[in-house]
Amino acid sequence: MILIIGGEAQGKRTFASSLFDKEPIIADCSVCEPKDIMTADLIISYHELIKRYTDKAEEITEELCKNNPEAVITLNEIGCGIIPIEKREREYREAAGRSGCIIAERAKEVYRLFCGKATKIK
């Protein structure tokens, strides 16, 4: 897997697309189902899926690592703010952090995007 992280609108998707020679099969996590990410080449905005499936996020992430080890995944860094008062929001941030750790550990490469520039951090 290749994991691409960064804040909102830093060029993650553009960088991710540049890694493919042919048109990748894309799973857009703001609309897709967990089963769709198991076969896609490029998984966009994985935090959006975590938000919709917070309670099962770590389980889904383990499945993803097992079933789709060649995937390219983009994931926003959402944990660098004030801890939200709402339980649901807090759980979302924590699930996104833990799921990101799981993917980063398994990934062969991790890039962090800032102002459109990629830094290879693994």
Partner: peptide, 8 residues
């Protein structure tokens, strides 16, 4: 230093 659940 780091954000929430980053392994710090």
């Amino acid at each position: 230093a780091g954000g929430s659940k980053c392994g710090k």
